[in-house]
């Protein structure tokens, strides 16, 4: 098992190298020479020359990549062209709202989606199942920012129950934090919730056809115990896996939703960076969130290995 875990950990390395290579190459896709791009639009030719030397553009590409990777590994993601502040510091300042949004969304999604999926599977092809199918179909098809505006229009502009936009940090009181975060979190959760519900439903349907579930029922075990102890436990693998894979939805959703609700997180940082063509910030955000995605999935795999005695360690 230890060997399996090690192998799984090591398997993320080639993936991260490809990600790093993509992110690094991005700069070379920009029109014109990277030094001019990085020096910013108002740079003098002397400044451009300085950046050129700093980048080591006289070196061959693989060598530059290795050099850049070393910098990144030591925590240096470069500095913002616009403000001159290190990218890592800028990201750190904006991390709280985004992470808070993602965690709240995850909690909402998982708490609603798993019971919903189980109910839908239990009422397979009946009204409740149909309703769940329609709701999750909407979750896949309605873009996050559309849901955002519709909810904000109903609950903030019309009913005035919740603030229209803005973010209040946890440190300034949990109630205010919750009032501010709840609507954006539901917005982000919608697609994530749909994905988890669909997978829970189909995993439960698969499991409930198994002989051991029939045996359990035949033994006269209560339906509750059949559902939770026999079916859900065995259906948990695909559910847990999709919770990990869905983190990609969560990341994309959070970044866009921040723009709808004017939440000062990584999404706003990125949107501002796009307007200012501040490439190092964009590179840094892509790199960190991809790393987050890969690590969450690694963690889930490892956790599952530890928890499920059936996992095959080949």
């Amino acid at each position: 098992m230890l060997i399996y875990c090690l192998k799984r950990i090591l398997s993320t390395i080639p993936v991260m190298i490809v990600v790093a290579l993509c992110v690094f190459s991005l700069l070379y896709l920009a029109p014109g020479d990277p030094a001019t791009v990085l020096a910013g639009e108002q740079a003098s030719s002397a400044e451009i020359e300085q950046v050129r030397i700093a980048l080591g553009l006289d070196q061959p590409f693989p060598l530059r990549f290795v050099e850049w990777s070393k910098q990144v590994l030591s925590g240096n993601l470069g500095v913002s062209i616009f403000s001159g502040i290190p990218v890592l510091e800028l990201i750190r300042q904006r991390l709280e709202p985004t992470i808070a949004l993602m965690i709240t969304s995850t909690i909402i999604s998982v708490l609603v989606a798993v019971p919903m999926g189980i109910l839908a599977a239990r009422h397979h092809n009946r009204l409740l199942d149909r309703i769940v199918n329609v709701v999750t179909a909407l979750g896949f098809s309605v873009p996050v920012f559309v849901i955002g505006y519709v909810l904000a229009w109903i609950f903030a502009v019309h009913l005035r129950w919740l603030p229209v936009q803005g973010y209040s940090p946890i440190s300034e009181g949990f109630a205010d934090f919750l009032r501010g975060i709840i609507m954006p979190a539901i917005v982000v959760a919608f697609s994530y919730f749909s994905l988890i519900t669909r997978v829970t439903r189909s995993a439960m349907l698969d499991v409930m056809r198994q002989d051991y579930v029939r045996t359990a029922r035949a033994k006269g075990i209560s339906e509750r115990s059949v559902l939770f102890d026999h079916a859900l436990r065995n259906a948990s693998m695909p559910i847990v896996t999709v919770v990990g894979l869905g983190v990609a939805l969560l990341i994309s959703g959070s970044l866009i939703t921040e723009t709808v609700f004017a939440i000062p997180g990584i999404g706003r940082l990125t949107a501002d960076a796009i307007l200012r063509r501040d490439y190092p910030i964009i590179q840094g955000v892509v790199l960190l969130f991809s790393l987050l995605y890969v690590l969450v999935n690694l963690l889930i795999d490892l956790l599952y290995t530890l928890l499920d005695p059936r996992v095959n360690f080949q």
Binding site: I17, C22, S252, T270, A273, V285, F289, Y293
Partner: peptide, 19 residues
Amino acid sequence: DGLMSIPSILLAIALVAII
């Protein structure tokens, strides 16, 4: 795998913002 590890919107943002 590497390309799929970059959340889709983020990769698209980066590409469009830079090109």
